[in-house]
């Protein structure tokens, strides 16, 4: 579904090589997490995959088609929830706007908006403005907007980095439920090793700059995940420990 091959990105002005050679692929319906030491170009990678930024070399393909700009059936949830929602629109309008642009008929649009807001537990604040909600709720709005868009591929750029721990656990479980229900191919970028192991079917480890794929690790945990039981499995601890060591190595290489 998503193929990234030989992706390289050099920022011209600063002559900084953010990505050297990144290659991986994500199958249809898979949830893959990307982790790496801070400053390793995770966001650059995501922006290239999203078609928001042209790579210097290499290619990104979604369902076989090369990405040259934002693909029509891709949705992104950004880290900065406070800046990715339109403050002059209500929650409902925020979720609805992309559907209007897609020319979804009004009846279906209402269904999708109501359905996705209910799915993230925000049906009762549909007429509030985003800035009247807590950070976690704002990020739920952004998630609802992505879900209502019915994407083939869902990209998430450290979506929970700016919310508190309790909210974060809730949102992780929300993502797992939505992903399972929709079967949407998901690429989840995070700097949190625990989160990557808990959510992912696979975890891709990026090296420190200049960035390459260091490891593509299958997460062989039972498919049903639970904050308490999954996190207390000894296998969880093994995977976590292994990834921690990898990240330390990646940082040491720099």
């Amino acid at each position: 579904m998503l193929e990234v091959s030989g992706l390289r990105k050099v920022y011209e002005g600063r002559r900084v090589e953010a990505l050297r050679e990144v290659t991986f692929q994500v199958d249809a319906g898979e949830l893959v997490c990307v982790i790496g030491p801070s400053g390793c170009g995770k966001t650059t990678l995501l922006r290239c995959v999203a078609g928001l930024m042209p790579p210097t070399a290499g290619s990104v393909k979604v369902a076989g088609a090369a990405v040259t700009g934002p693909p029509p059936r891709m949705a992104v949830v950004f880290q900065e929830y406070g800046r990715s929602l339109f403050p002059w629109m209500t929650v409902r309008q925020n979720v609805e706007l992309p559907l209007k642009e897609k020319k979804v008929p009004a009846v279906r649009r209402n269904e999708l908006v109501a359905g996705s807001l209910a799915a993230v537990g925000l049906a009762d604040v549909a007429d509030a403005h985003p800035w009247q909600l807590s950070g976690g709720m704002q990020q739920r709005v952004a998630i609802a907007r992505a879900v209502a868009y019915e994407p083939q591929v869902l990209l998430m750029d450290e979506p929970f980095a700016a919310v508190d721990a309790q909210t974060r656990a809730d949102l992780e479980d929300l993502i797992l439920v939505l992903w399972r229900d929709m079967g949407v191919t998901t690429l989840f970028v995070t700097h949190d090793i625990d989160e990557a192991v808990y959510l992912g079917q696979r975890v891709i480890v990026l090296s420190g700059s200049p960035t390459v794929v260091m490891e593509d690790l299958k997460i062989d945990l039972p498919p049903e995940r639970d904050q308490l039981t999954t996190r207390s499995l000894s296998r969880f601890a093994d995977l976590r420990g292994h990834l921690y060591a990898q990240i330390q190595r990646a940082r040491g290489d720099r």
Binding site: L52, G69, P70, A75, V76, P98
Partner: peptide, 29 residues
């Protein structure tokens, strides 16, 4: 105008007149 909001518009196909109406004018309001 906020770059993240601008990127959001690009991702969700909000462009041209729609972008003007929903992003540029209210953002610069």
């Amino acid at each position: 105008l906020d770059e993240v909001l601008s990127d959001t518009c690009r991702m969700y196909g909000v462009r041209d007149l729609s972008r003007l109406r929903h992003l540029v004018l209210p953002g610069a309001g």
